[in-house]
């Protein structure tokens, strides 16, 4: 396990050179976590800064995206989320932002926008797990490492998310008009 980094030549800093490519995915994860565009932007920037500060710890050849997701999840969990919850009412409500945005901008596919809305209406722990496993394609083990939880937790979050989404689908198939609600 060789750790390659060169502080003397910034061009050889794989963190610095790799970040631009994953910015949009970082932002997407930040949106899933925060539900707020402005907060997401700041979370991405804070994550980039922290990643640059810790770049010596990054092992060249490993996945920069996962490593950076992990930094973001940790920043969110430890620094930002509590503050947001404490602030409470000051924030745009979880269901609104993305749902509206998504629906507007993906007019071409209402169904996909609905998927986005359904996922965004899940509790935070579930939707971040869903994003990492089902969207980003991480294995359970990788997602567990990224979110710093046991694999069993990843599994139970996914099961809970699927049950919730299945209930939505069946309610819809049952004919009644669907209402997306948060699980908790």
């Amino acid at each position: 396990m060789n750790i390659h980094y060169e502080m003397t030549n910034p061009d050889h800093n794989p963190v610095k050179s790799g970040l631009p490519e994953i910015l949009s995915r970082l932002w997407r994860f930040a949106m899933v976590l925060s539900h707020n565009e402005e907060t997401a932007g700041d979370l991405v920037q804070a994550t980039c800064l922290r990643a640059l500060q810790k770049c010596e710890q990054f092992q060249a050849g490993t996945h920069l995206d996962r490593w950076t997701f992990s930094i973001m999840a940790s920043l969110w969990k430890n620094e930002l989320r509590a503050e947001r919850i404490r602030r409470g009412g000051g924030f745009v409500d979880a269901e609104e932002v993305l749902v509206t945005d998504g629906a507007e901008k993906i007019e071409t596919n209402i169904l996909l926008a609905e998927v986005l809305a359904e996922v965004q209406a899940l509790p935070e722990a579930q939707r971040s797990t869903v994003l990492l496993v089902y969207v980003e394609g991480l294995t359970y083990a990788e997602a567990a490492e990224t979110l710093e939880v046991p694999i069993g937790t990843i599994m139970s979050r996914l099961a809970a998310a699927r049950l919730k989404l299945a209930a939505l689908k069946r309610a819809e198939d049952g004919g009644s008009k669907r209402q997306v609600k948060t699980g908790q």
Partner: peptide, 27 residues
């Protein structure tokens, strides 16, 4: 299985909304 969705396609839409100019400037 009914709880499955076309995850990647749905979230690709979100990717397209990323404010790249701002993100790059911030980086």
């Amino acid at each position: 299985d009914d709880g499955a969705r076309p995850w990647k396609d749905a979230f690709a839409g979100l990717l397209e909304q990323a404010p790249m100019e701002k993100l790059e400037a911030d980086l």
